[in-house]
Nucleic acid binder design. Sequence first.
DNA 1: CATGAAAGTCATCACGA
DNA 2: TCGTGATGACTTTCATG
Lengths: 151, 151
Amino acid sequence: MDAVDTHILNILRDNARISNAELARTVGMAPSAVLERVRKLERKGVIERYEARINPKEVGLSLTAFTFVHVEEGVGTLDTGQKLAALPEVLEAHYTAGSASYLLKLRVSDTEGLAQLLQRIGRIEGVRDTNSTIVLRTLKETSAPAVVETP
Amino acid sequence: MDAVDTHILNILRDNARISNAELARTVGMAPSAVLERVRKLERKGVIERYEARINPKEVGLSLTAFTFVHVEEGVGTLDTGQKLAALPEVLEAHYTAGSASYLLKLRVSDTEGLAQLLQRIGRIEGVRDTNSTIVLRTLKETSAPAVVETP
DNA sequence: CATGAAAGTCATCACGA
DNA sequence: TCGTGATGACTTTCATG
């Protein structure tokens, strides 16, 4: 992980569909050398995947919410998390510190969709209660900050 | 937005670096036609951008936290949000319902990094207090669910 | 690790249906 | 909107510094 690698990461982070040739020109190296670095970053798991960001409103998902899910502590806690994560409306599922809880990021069509989803969540085994925060406006939404060299 | 468009979106959502030729083969159309559809989806803003997902731990960001920031209500509320969103450690900034607050998704190196960031946040004009939840384990982290046809 | 050459593949455009 | 065909650019591999 040298300066060239971080440069490559920062470019791909913002523009995953750039051609390898242009990427090479930008970092000032031969395309073959750059391709090898990218492959290595992929193999090492530094680059997890390439994804297109889709405007949620354009595909009928106008409502974003964050929901804390309080689960009964014990053996089944992780199972409950897996079931929560398996729901398509759940974009993110984090197991958090504090009283055995999950924090979910949800995307649904509207408040009616949220109500139905919360009902479904409430019926999952191990779920005690939920506490939702509705997003009124999103000011920033990225997946990673600029990469800095880490020796 | 027909079935072909949603098919294209679902493919690019999971693999933004697929070649247009292969994309065309997958959806069963000529490359030129598919390219035109993709360009149109980009122009309409349905596809916002293409990004590489970088493993945060591999670049020295091992700690994820969600932080509610309580701000003083009034004229400067939005300004405060902009300042919060401008911090590189802030991956997401959402203005939420409930007592004038922002919800931030943060990524830092460790608890020391979090402490320093919270101090910086606390000094931003208009910020009253913060309330953080630390992520112990992330079970799922995507940017969008499978796209379904929306007429 | 990087380069440069070579072969196959692809992006892109004009045109006709 | 779509498919075809042409062309220049690109990807990918490999032999070699």
